[in-house]
């Protein structure tokens, strides 16, 4: 069984070293994002597999986004979801080469998304409704074999 492994690493399993990252952790607060409060939630975002290079070379970000967003026909509000987060990241966090991250509403094939350490395919992908202090990890599976 895997529990018998005696190999211990001190890594994050995300494929970067501190030397390749600008800052191990950075607090990014874009101007339009208010600090966490009644109307916003805090989300931790991490990048692996080299993806941080598209996000100012920062592998870890803490962001604040609205708790509720307008629904599709603007008649009411709905809880904020992954679709909103991905869109938000494209306009607020992505520093270069959008086509390397985004694909339509979602993310490019070959990018693995984990929501609180679970494969997002089990969590509803873009429809997943985000909660305060959720941790989202994006890992590129391409290259670097």
């Amino acid at each position: 069984m895997s529990t018998s492994d005696d190999i211990i690493t001190t890594s994050n399993g995300l494929g970067y070293t501190s030397s390749s990252a600008a800052h191990p952790e950075s607090l990014v607060k874009p101007p339009q994002a208010p600090s966490a409060g009644e109307d916003t939630i805090e989300i931790k975002i991490e990048f692996g597999g080299g993806l941080h290079l598209l996000f100012s070379s920062q592998p870890s970000h803490k962001i604040h986004i609205p708790r509720n967003i307008p629904n599709d026909d603007n008649t009411a509000t709905q809880p904020v979801n992954m679709r909103y987060l991905v869109k938000w990241m494209k306009s607020n966090l992505l520093s270069e080469r959008e086509e390397m991250f985004g694909d339509g509403d979602g993310v490019r094939p070959g990018i693995l998304v984990l929501i609180n350490d679970a494969d997002w395919e089990l969590e509803g992908e873009l429809e997943y409704e985000l909660r305060d202090r959720d941790e989202i990890v994006f890992i590129s599976t391409l290259h670097g074999g």
Binding site: N12, G13, G15, G50, R108, S140, G144
Partner: peptide, 11 residues
């Protein structure tokens, strides 16, 4: 497993 690996600009 939190393995130590390295990935560069790889996309």
């Amino acid at each position: 497993k939190k393995l130590t690996y390295f990935s560069t600009e790889c996309i």
